[in-house]
């Protein structure tokens, strides 16, 4: 690091232009970026670092990666994590059936075993799973490692090499380095603590429920046929419900589902009756619905 009196950090005139372009491009792909999100995408690209996105369910973590791949015209390669996900499903597997067939075909021919072995541990016999696919792809890719908190700690260790060096070591083949480093997005619902080692390799974006303006914008983008004043009422109600002490707060997906339901009902304006009869779209638990209904009834002047 040089030690100079002048600003070492570029007043970067391009930066704000690029940020606007990112927002525009994501919007064309159905995703509304806050300034924060756009800036994170910009920096991730510049630093060539994976982004770890954390936040409650339904705030747009998965969708972010999808829209990004759309904007970049890159292939989306998705590794959906689940309990018990292992190397063979995530990285690669030797195609043993093909290997067996090959060995059988070679029988009778005058090849020594070493030669055969060399043959069958060739890339031709490798079944690529998402991670290897992303590394070996000739085209630009977005690699989405979705819900990383669902896999065990040991699995994280497997990812470290990919995340820091964009390469994979296969004992029989050596190290495969990415031709096109993928843009990597990892998501987590924070059901367990991720390791420091993993987090150190990523930029960290915490996605929470959006503020009122942005949620309204999202509703307008996704349900454009809905009149503005209805959209605003919908978002206000959702936000108020989120502030209540309930079991499962409505997320953006539920806001959108509700907005569509209200649109199909064709009402001019939201009233108590409409809210009450459609609450089941917004809330999943009977207790939560009762709680909101009660508040609605006690707070409303008739």
């Amino acid at each position: 690091m040089q030690n100079s009196a002048v600003l070492p950090f570029g007043p970067n005139s391009d930066q704000s232009k690029i940020i606007d372009e990112i927002k525009e491009g994501m919007k064309e792909n159905g995703y509304l970026c806050s300034d924060t999100i756009a800036n994170v995408l910009y920096l991730a690209e510049k630093l060539q670092k994976p982004v770890l996105v954390e936040g409650p369910a339904g705030v747009g973590k998965t969708e972010l990666a999808k829209a990004l791949s759309g904007m970049k015209k890159a292939e989306l390669i998705r590794l959906q994590c689940y309990e018990g996900l292992d190397e063979a499903k995530a990285l690669y597997e030797w195609n043993y059936k093909k290997q067996l067939l090959h060995i059988q075909a070679m029988q009778g021919k005058d090849l020594d075993w070493e030669k055969i072995e060399e043959n069958i541990f060739d890339e031709d016999f490798l079944l690529s799973r998402p991670l290897l696919k992303a590394i070996t792809s000739d085209k630009p890719t977005v690699l989405l490692i979705d819900e990383i908190d669902k896999v065990d700690l040991e699995f994280e260790a497997l990812l470290l090499e990919i995340l820091s060096d964009f390469q994979i070591s296969i004992p029989e083949l050596g190290t495969i380095k990415a031709k096109n480093p993928p843009f990597v997005i990892l998501t987590s619902n924070n059901t367990r603590e991720l390791t420091e080692a993993l987090k150190r390799r990523c930029l960290f974006l915490f996605l929470d429920y959006p503020d009122m303006d942005r949620e309204l914008e999202i509703v307008k983008l996704k349900v454009p046929e809905l009149p503005e004043h209805l959209a605003k009422q919908i978002v206000r109600v959702v936000r108020l419900i989120r502030s209540m002490d309930i079991k499962k707060s409505p997320s953006i997906s539920e806001t959108l589902d509700w907005a569509r339901a209200i649109f199909y009902l064709g009402v001019d304006s939201l009233d108590r009756q409409t809210v009450e009869t459609t609450l089941n779209v917004l809330l999943k638990y009977q207790g939560d619905m009762e709680r909101v209904t009660q508040s609605l009834r006690s707070g409303l002047r008739v």
Binding site: Q15, N39, V40, L43, L47, L203, L205
Partner: peptide, 30 residues
Amino acid sequence: VDCFQALTHVSVFDKQAFKLALSITLVKDS
């Protein structure tokens, strides 16, 4: 190191970008 790298890509006159360059490289737990 990441933080300093990130700062080379943002303008210090943009408060939000400046702050974000710091937070996404230094803060890894909500």
